[in-house]
Measured scan of single mutants.
Amino acid sequence: DKHFVVALYDYTAMNDRDLQMLKGEKLQVLKGTGDWWLARSLVTGREGYVPSNFVARVE
């Protein structure tokens, strides 16, 4: 069951495990537990961690 989110804010990666994203960017959540979610950008195809409070679910 795939679940998708949209970035509510720009996020600048703090290290090489984070995923940089721009407000409005759509992401697929690969692992969504805790404060940091592993996601893949549908724009760039890159994977990394994003802060869960920076994204909102897309139905």
Rank of each mutant, 00 (worst) to 15 (best):
W36S: 11
N53I: 05
R40E: 03
Y11F: 11
A56M: 10
M14V: 15
V43S: 14
N15T: 11
T44N: 07
V50G: 05
K23M: 05
N53S: 12
N15R: 11
D18F: 11
L38E: 03
Y49S: 03
S41N: 11
L22E: 06
E59V: 05
Q20F: 07
V6E: 14
G48F: 04
Q20W: 06
A39E: 02
F4D: 08
L27A: 04
P51I: 00
A13R: 08
L42N: 07
Y49W: 11
V29L: 10
K2I: 10
T12C: 11
R17S: 14
T33D: 15
L27D: 03
A7T: 03
G24W: 01
T12H: 13
K2Y: 08
P51N: 07
N53P: 08
V43M: 12
Y49I: 06
A7G: 05
S41C: 01
R40G: 01
K23D: 06
L38I: 06
V43D: 14
R17I: 06
W37C: 11
V6N: 05
K26G: 05
F4R: 06
V6F: 10
H3K: 11
N53A: 10
G24Y: 02
R46G: 07
N53W: 09
T12K: 15
V6I: 12
V29E: 02
N15Q: 10
G24I: 06
L22I: 11
G48C: 00
S52P: 06
G32K: 14
N15C: 12
N15G: 13
M21T: 06
V55R: 01
F54S: 15
L30K: 05
T12Q: 14
W36N: 09
Q28L: 14
K2E: 07
V43I: 11
R40H: 04
G45R: 07
S41W: 01
G48Q: 00
M21D: 00
W37H: 07
L30Q: 06
N53E: 12
R57P: 15
D16K: 13
D35G: 07
K26I: 04
T33F: 07
G34E: 06
Q20L: 06
V58H: 11
R46E: 12
W37T: 13
V5M: 15
P51Q: 06
F4H: 07
G45M: 07
E47T: 14
K23C: 06
V50R: 05
A56E: 15
G34K: 06
D18Q: 15
L22Y: 11
W37N: 03
E59F: 07
L8P: 04
M14Q: 15
W37R: 04
L42R: 02
E25P: 01
K2G: 06
N15Y: 07
L42F: 02
V50D: 09
E25F: 04
Y11N: 04
Y49V: 07
K2D: 08
D1S: 09
L27E: 00
W36C: 10
K2S: 12
F54H: 15
Y9W: 09
K31M: 11
T44C: 01
N15M: 07
D18V: 07
E47Q: 12
Q28A: 08
G34I: 03
L27S: 01
R57Y: 09
L42H: 04
P51Y: 05
D35M: 11
G45E: 02
E25H: 05
K2Q: 13
L22C: 15
W37Y: 13
D18C: 11
V55P: 00
Q28S: 05
T33W: 06
Y11D: 00
L38M: 08
E59I: 07
K2R: 09
D10G: 05
V55K: 00
R57V: 09
P51G: 01
K31F: 05
S41R: 02
N53V: 06
Q20A: 14
H3E: 14
D18P: 05
R57H: 11
F54L: 14
V29S: 00
A56Q: 13
K31L: 10
V43K: 14
A7E: 01
G48S: 01
A39V: 15
T44R: 04
R46L: 10
A7R: 01
W37V: 14
T12R: 12
D10H: 07
A39I: 10
L27I: 05
D35T: 12
T33L: 04
L42V: 10
K23N: 05
L30Y: 06
V6L: 08
R57I: 06
Y9S: 14
W37D: 00
D16A: 14
K26N: 10
R17F: 12
L42P: 06
G34W: 00
D16G: 11
A56Y: 05
W37G: 03
T33M: 09
D16M: 08
L22G: 11
A56R: 14
D1K: 10
V29M: 01
D18K: 07
A39G: 03
S52G: 09
V58G: 09
M21F: 12
R40K: 10
L42C: 14
G32M: 15
V58Q: 09
R17M: 11
D35S: 11
P51C: 05
N53L: 03
R57L: 06
R40F: 00
D1P: 00
D1G: 12
G48L: 04
Y49F: 12
G34C: 03
A39M: 13
F4E: 09
K23Y: 04
A39C: 15
V43A: 13
G34M: 00
V58K: 06
R57E: 15
M14E: 14
R46H: 07
T33C: 08
L42D: 05
V55I: 08
Y11W: 09
V55S: 02
K2F: 09
G34T: 08
L19P: 06
M14A: 14
D10P: 08
L8W: 00
L19I: 06
S41M: 02
L19A: 02
T12I: 14
D18M: 10
A13S: 13
V55M: 00
W36K: 14
L19G: 01
D18L: 03
V58A: 11
F54E: 00
E25C: 01
R57Q: 12
Y9V: 13
A13H: 03
Y9F: 14
K31E: 15
F4G: 03
Q28V: 10
N53M: 07
W37A: 08
E59A: 09
E47L: 07
E47I: 09
L38A: 02
V58C: 13
A39Q: 00
M21H: 03
Y9E: 14
L27T: 04
Q20K: 13
D10E: 06
A7F: 01
N15K: 11
A56L: 07
A13D: 04
M14H: 13
N53H: 13
S41H: 08
K23S: 06
V6H: 08
Y9Q: 15
V58P: 09
Q28H: 07
A7L: 03
Q28G: 02
D1N: 11
H3L: 12
E47R: 09
K31I: 11
Y9D: 14
W36D: 10
L30I: 10
V43T: 15
Y9G: 10
R40A: 01
K2H: 13
M14G: 14
E47C: 09
G48N: 00
N15F: 09
A7K: 01
V55C: 10
V55Y: 00
V6D: 04
E47K: 09
E59H: 09
K23F: 00
E59C: 06
D18N: 12
K2N: 15
A56P: 02
V55T: 08
G48V: 01
S52T: 06
Q28M: 08
Q28T: 06
V29I: 14
W37I: 15
R46Y: 06
V5S: 09
F54Q: 13
R46I: 05
T44Q: 03
V29Y: 05
V43N: 13
E47Y: 07
E59Q: 14
K23H: 03
D16R: 09
E25W: 02
F54R: 12
R57K: 14
P51T: 00
L8I: 09
K26F: 08
V29F: 01
D35N: 11
Y9C: 15
L38P: 01
K2V: 01
S52W: 07
H3C: 12
N15D: 12
Y49N: 08
S41K: 04
R40V: 04
D16Y: 07
M14F: 08
V43H: 10
G24C: 00
E25I: 00
L19V: 02
T33S: 13
V43R: 15
R17P: 04
